[in-house]
Amino acid sequence: MFSYCIDPEVLGQFRWLSCYLTTGKHFAFYGSFATVLILLAITAPTALAFGFGGASIARSRIGPISWIGKGYIAIVRGVPDIAFFLFFVIALDQAFEFARHKVICPEWNEPIRQGSDFIVCKAAKLPLGNAPQWIHETYGFFLAVLTFAIVFGAFAANVIFGAMRAVPKAQLETAEAYGMSRRQTFWRILVPQMWVFALPGLSNLWMVLIKATPLLFLLGVEDIVYWARELGSTKNAKFTSYPHGDWRMQYFFFLLVFYLAFTKVSEVVLDRIMKRLTHGQATAGGEAQRKAAV
């Protein structure tokens, strides 16, 4: 990047490092941090929506519907999550292709699973075979986001389901006594009050979500783990002007520090939010705040 970077072999240590850290590949590495942050920014609200939906379904008074919600929560929580990540990425892809196949090529009559192959007609391929590279990458990222949202949606559903039950019964009964319908009670009384109960669980979930982001690597996205492995591995003088030995340890140490800093910052921020939300609430936390203020 700098003008003196033309011949790295003659540079001093510090200048060499400044050139090394600003190569195109390193910018891709820095960009992959943005990938992680974008993933978090998209996944967190999506998972929350999934969770809200799941919890509302699980609360349903109609048996079979509530079983669907509870089943969703129970199944995702009972199995190692990595298995889910690996499973959903293929399963979702095949499900989408299968659905498109049924719609686009109805006249196709060969079986879709032939031995070890999964064959749909050309027009139903996702993304299309002739699509540019960025569409492939975006599609991969989209699948990853959806997978994260499904898995974390189940966790969030569990938290929200618990929070909904923690809202004092008397509140709901009062609403009923005022003649509110079930729907009104739900939206006007239950939902606004449950967040305080849900927040500790949700903030815990946020921490877990942060720590799950390296798993993007397993889903085939070029994330920070991918780049750390790529850049850190031994570089031969034949192929690069910045040869070095095996630096993967240093790169992963950097990732470790990044995550520690990230979780620390989140912890501080979430503590603040919790303090603000408990302000004036009829809970032990709110009571403690009131006493401290007096």
Binding site: V225, A228, D246, R248, M249
Partner: peptide
Amino acid sequence: GSPLFIQFFFAYFLFLN
């Protein structure tokens, strides 16, 4: 505070060194 996945990677390369 850090992901187990990263801990595994780091430990492996640390032991290699």
